Amino acid sequence: MLWWLFLFFWLQSSTLIFAADPLGDNFTTAFRPRLQSMLWLLLGFALMLWLFMVLTGWSESNLQLTGYLYSKAPAWLRPTGGSLVYSNILGHVLLDIAVFFLPGILLPLIAAKVLYAEPQRALRILVNWKYWLTLFVIAHIGLWLPAVVLEWRFGNTARMQAISLGVRLFLALICGTAAWMMTAGLLGYLLRGSDTGGEARTA
């Protein structure tokens, strides 16, 4: 188990480091294990996972809050479907925050620690509309597209269904991997400060 965790965080941190300076000569250096970078990535992912679970928990159990809001709302703001409409809206909002905005906010901060970049660069990313637009496209590739692929089925026999499952899982994995690579490239490009001529320290 520990070996797999080490391998996972080594690959992810090395991918971020290489994305900050994607030259062939830097490949070996980028994929040299860096325990400090791996630790920052571990802590960042743990925080992200915890906040994700909190937000998704709120999205699934908000009936008491939405019931209170419904009872206090003026008549013209009360939908005919009752407080359940409020609950569904709030649930979707919290889920969008957990799936898109939470990673979008934390990933630049995590990547800055992994790359030993200045924190100000991560903060500048968060107010960059191009970052959010690009991340929105990447999120569709990494989340929406795999969901569509997994729903796709072909064949009626048990053998074809098994082949279908294998193909769908493989394509979903490709989409997820491509999305992460694009995210790493986006973060590396923005954090290395190409617009100012600076470089994130990767050594």
Score class of each variant (00 low, 15 high):
L41P: 01
D96T: 11
Y86C: 09
S61E: 05
P79A: 11
I125Y: 04
R121A: 00
L106H: 04
N88D: 08
A75M: 11
Y70K: 08
P146N: 13
K72R: 13
A30E: 09
W152E: 15
L106Y: 03
Q64K: 10
W50H: 08
P119T: 06
F45I: 08
P79I: 04
F101A: 13
L35P: 01
L23S: 14
F31I: 11
N128P: 02
D21E: 10
S37H: 06
P146L: 15
N128Y: 01
L135D: 02
L49C: 04
K113N: 04
V137H: 05
L143I: 13
L143H: 11
V114M: 04
T29A: 15
R34C: 05
R34K: 11
I97N: 02
W50Q: 06
I97T: 08
N26Y: 05
L106E: 02
S59V: 03
W76V: 03
W40M: 02
A122G: 09
F45D: 07
A46P: 00
N26V: 07
M53S: 12
Q64C: 12
D25Q: 15
K113T: 00
A112D: 01
L69K: 03
E151A: 15
N62W: 03
W132H: 08
M48Q: 14
M48V: 04
L143P: 01
L145T: 09
